[in-house]
């Protein structure tokens, strides 16, 4: 994806995780899926839920494992689609 000197670029903006950290995590633990990187490094666990970084992590995984990006699954989507306040779910009187 990038040359050696560019590896401090931010991959996950919500959680402030760099390309270098993603690569090191993949190599250290022998990871092959976006879900594993997400659970260990928090990349994609922030407020945007990985809308931007999941595809980037997948491309890095493809490079590190020698697989095609499309053969590496994207992470399981979890609701809600956008952060929402607890108060929304309360009845009028409880708010």
């Amino acid at each position: 994806m990038s040359s050696e000197q560019d590896r401090d670029i931010i991959i996950c903006r919500c959680e402030d995780i760099t390309e270098r950290e993603v690569r090191e995590c993949i190599r250290r633990h022998g990871l092959t899926t976006v879900d594993e990187v997400r659970k260990i490094l928090r990349a994609g666990m922030g407020l945007c839920q990985g809308k931007t970084c999941s595809a980037l992590v997948r491309r890095i995984l493809a490079e590190e494992t020698g697989k095609k990006a499309e053969d590496i699954g994207l992470p399981s989507a979890r609701q809600p689609a956008k952060p929402v306040e607890f108060g929304i779910f309360l009845q009028e009187g409880d708010r």
Binding site: L47, Q49, P80, P83, V84, E85, F86, G87
Partner: peptide
């Protein structure tokens, strides 16, 4: 917690 946001379930 009323004003706190849920991110994921």
């Amino acid at each position: 917690m009323k004003k706190v946001k849920i991110v994921r379930q």
